[in-house]
Every structure is written in structure tokens, then in C-alpha cells.
Amino acid sequence: MTRFLLERLAHAITVIAVVSLLTFFIIHLAPGGPSLLADPKLSRVERAAIERELGVDRPLPQQFATWVTRVARGDLGRSFLYQTPNVDTILARFPNTLLLAGSALLLSIVLAIPLGAYAAAHPGSLLDRTLGLASFTIMAVPAFWLGIGAILVFAVGTHLLPAGGASTPGLGWSVADRLRHLLLPAVVLSAATSAELFRYARTSAGAAFKLPLVRTVRAKGGRRRTVAWHALRNALIPVLTVIGLQLPRLVGGAAITETVFAWPGMGRLGVEAALGRDYPLVMAMTLFVSAAVVLVNIAIDLCYAWADPRIRLDATGARG
């Protein structure tokens, strides 16, 4: 176990280093350069002064070396656009993303897994067929369309819920207010995930109900709950994989949903940083998100072992 963790951590550091290097050169290859310099009215002197201040006048390898040295000292740099330390910028946005993506994921799990299991236990029933159709429809609808549609119905049409933002400005902090603002984006963000998760849960629960192990439990006269427990624990493996694939969004944010609902999360920040060619912020976010994703993946691997004891933890990433 300890050996597994150490080896996986070594892998993680390599992955993060490679991702950083690639991101650094890709973002610098993108045309245009920092949006601060996109003002056509700057004089030559002003332009040169800004380039010097931002440090973008130096050769790329030197810029990369400076960045690595700073990171090694724990300094993630200052944003061009925000003129604040990147750590502060990211930490101000991260809780919002965690809240939105976390609630969306929770909502998906709470909705999709029971419904999937129910549909698998009653194949061909009216509910099964309805849910099947609904899940395909939702998966086919783009998030921004669903988001704008939800705003038109619930905010413009009925004034039931706010059209965007994370709270009502100037009201102070209140749970009800935060919930009102969270509801629409969380539902819209969870829609596609729920649909996908539902289909996986239904398929894998369907397969699990037919396992010899489950048949044996049934034959021994196990109660319905015992049967369900044995079946569903086996059905969890593919579902965990799908949940694992959603986790990067917990840290990286969901740019489209966050934009539609003017939600101050990491996704929008990342888009702004990339469009503004805010090199230090792009690099800091890359580092933060890739580190988090790699760590979460290690955690998911540990969960596999819990869900199916036959799975041996092996640092090469092979899963039993």
C-alpha cells in the first residue's frame, strides 16, 4: 500500500511536470500575446515598457526557467490581468467551483444511481423506457442551450429564481440566498452527467443482477436487500470510473455553465486567462488543476480496491 502510494506520487510529479512544460509552450505559441498589449493606441515606448514589466520580452527558455525557479520556491506568480498573486486569485474562485460542481455531482449520484438500479431491476417497464429516452435527449442538448432555456423559464418568465451570480449583492451572506443562486446552475451542470451516469448504472446493474454470485445469493434465499447489496457493489466499478471522469470538473470548473450563470468559478477564470494570454495565471491554474486531478485519480484507484477486493493495487495503474 505505502509502496503503491509512493510510486503513484512519483508518477504524479512526472505527469505534472510534463503537463506544465507542454502548457507553457502551447500558450506561448498561441498568436496575439497578452491582451494588455492588444491596445492599438499604445506608443512604441509604452508597449516596450509593458513588455519589460511583464517579462515577456525575454527568450522563452529563460521565461520558463524563471517560472520553474519561482514554483520551486512556492511562488505561483502574479496575474497579468488581475494584478494579484495567482494563489489568491485561484483560492478566491476554487470554493465556488467546489460548491457548484460538488452539488452537481452529488445531485447526479443521488438521482442517477438509484434510478439506474431501479430501471435495471425492471427492464422494459414504462419508467425504464421513459428514463432511457430522457437520458438520451438530455445528453444531446448543449449545456448553454439548457442554461439559457432554464433562465428564460425560471428567471425571465416566472421570476422564481435569479438569472445568475452566486449571491444577491449587498444582501450579506444567507444560506437561502446562496441556495437560490446555486439551484439552476447545479441542475443544468448535473443534467448531462446524470444522464450519462444513469446509462452506466443501468447497464452495469443489469449485468450485475445476472452474476453467478447474485444468483447464488438468491438461491440461498437471501432477502431482497441482501441480493441488491451484492449486485450493486459489483455494479459500482464502471460507475466509479464515470464519476472519476467527472472529478476534474470539481477543480477545473465547468466553463460553459459558469459563463451562462455568471458563476465566479475556476472554469470561467481559466477561459479568461487563456483568452487574455495571462501566462502566469494559465500556468498556475494548470499546476493546481493537474495536481488535484492526479491526486483524485489515486483516490479513485483506492476506491476500486474497496469496491472489489479482487483488484490489486499496482503502481503501473493496471486495474486488476
Binding site: 445568475g164 459563463t259 455568471a262
Partner: peptide, 20 residues
């Protein structure tokens, strides 16, 4: 005076129509 950071113009219009 309240400035809301809303980058997308369609979303700004939706908020205007929602009275926000």
C-alpha cells in the same frame, strides 16, 4: 451602484429581462 461581472452579452440581456 452594483457592477456584476457577466462576460456574455446574451446572459446580460437575460438578466436585464429578468429585472436583475
Amino acid at each position: 451602484v452594483i457592477f456584476k461581472v457577466v462576460p456574455d452579452i446574451n446572459v446580460q440581456v437575460a438578466q436585464l429581462r429578468a429585472g436583475e
